[in-house]
Simulated assay, not measured.
Amino acid sequence: MPRRLTQTKSETHQTMKNTSFESMVVSWLMQDGWQVFIPILDHGHKTDLLISDGPNYYRIQVKTVEASGDAHVVQNRWEGSNIDVVIFFARNSNWGVIAPGFHEKERPLNHETHRKFIQSKKEFLREFHQL
């Protein structure tokens, strides 16, 4: 069996983990019938994913947070970029939160407009459809 015999730098490993959450969302949305587009570079527009049902397009930002609970306050890092949906994943647990893009500087994860889910396709899609 293959074994990784080299050490990965901590910054690289963190980037790999963050990207894996984006890949998970891509997979879940594609299985639900969405067209999913991944920008080659997202620094200017801060868009991790662009999804479409045909006539409509939505911009998605995927973030990971070290949250000890859903009262954790998150910072708006996409100001001015017209993000439609932000998906937060708790790095240190098995849950996440789907939020409509917001304009405030910060907001608690348990805000009334946010949808909490357990990290599974079924749970994610159930909450995503209720946005």
Results as ranks from 00 to 15, higher is better:
Asp53Ser: 15
Lys9Val: 01
His13Pro: 02
Trp95Cys: 03
Ala67Phe: 00
His45Cys: 05
Asn82Pro: 02
Thr8Lys: 15
Ser68Asn: 14
Ile83Met: 04
Gly96Glu: 01
Val85Ser: 04
Gln61Val: 01
Trp28Thr: 02
Arg126Ala: 14
Gln35Leu: 11
Asp48Ile: 02
His103Trp: 04
Phe21Leu: 11
Arg59Ile: 03
Asn94Pro: 00
Ser120Arg: 13
Arg4Val: 10
Ser20Val: 03
Thr47Cys: 12
Val73Gly: 05
Thr8Ala: 09
Trp34Leu: 07
His45Tyr: 13
Ser23Gly: 14
Glu127Phe: 00
Arg91Gly: 03
Val36Met: 08
Ser27Cys: 09
Lys121His: 10
Arg77Thr: 13
Thr15Cys: 08
Ser20Ile: 04
Lys9Ser: 07
Ser52Cys: 12
Glu66Cys: 01
His13Glu: 15
Phe89Tyr: 11
Ile51Glu: 02
Glu123Ala: 14
Val62Ala: 00
Ile40Asp: 11
Gly44Ser: 12
Leu50Gly: 08
Ser23Val: 11
Gln61Cys: 08
Phe117Gln: 01
Gln61Ala: 10
Phe117Pro: 03
Gly54Ala: 07
Phe89Ala: 03
His114Asp: 01
Gln75Pro: 02
Asn82Cys: 06
Arg115Ser: 00
Thr6Tyr: 15
Tyr57Trp: 10
His129Asp: 15
Gln14Val: 07
His72Asn: 11
Gly33Asp: 13
Gln119Asp: 08
Ser120Met: 10
Glu79His: 08
Ile98Gln: 00
His114Gln: 05
Val86His: 00
Gln119Tyr: 08
Leu125Arg: 13
Leu49Trp: 05
Gln119Arg: 10
Asp84Phe: 08
Val85Ile: 15
Glu112Phe: 08
Thr8Asn: 08
Ser27Gln: 14
Asp48Gly: 06
Ser10Arg: 15
Gly96Trp: 01
Phe117Trp: 08
Arg91Val: 03
His72Lys: 12
Lys46Arg: 15
Arg115Tyr: 04
Ile83His: 01
Asn76Val: 10
Val26Gly: 05
Tyr58Asn: 07
Asn18Ile: 00
Ile40Pro: 05
Lys122Asp: 11
Ser68Thr: 12
Lys105Val: 01
Ser10His: 15
Leu29Ile: 06
Leu41Ser: 12
Trp78Arg: 02
Ser68Glu: 13
Thr15Glu: 13
Leu29Val: 07
Gln61Arg: 12
Ile87Phe: 05
Leu131Gln: 10
Asp32Leu: 05
Arg107Trp: 06
Leu125Gln: 09
Phe37Trp: 09
Asp84Tyr: 11
Phe117Ala: 03
Val97Gly: 03
His13Leu: 11
His72Trp: 06
Glu11Ile: 06
Phe21Asn: 07
Glu79Asn: 04
Phe21Gln: 08
His43Trp: 10
Asp42Leu: 05
Ile60Cys: 07
Thr19Pro: 04
Glu127His: 01
Glu79Met: 05
Val85Thr: 13
Phe124Gln: 04
Pro108Tyr: 02
Gln14Lys: 14
Asp70Tyr: 00
Arg4Gln: 13
Trp95Leu: 03
Leu41Arg: 14
Glu22His: 06
Thr8Val: 11
Asp84Trp: 11
Asp48Phe: 02
Glu11Gln: 13
Lys105Thr: 06
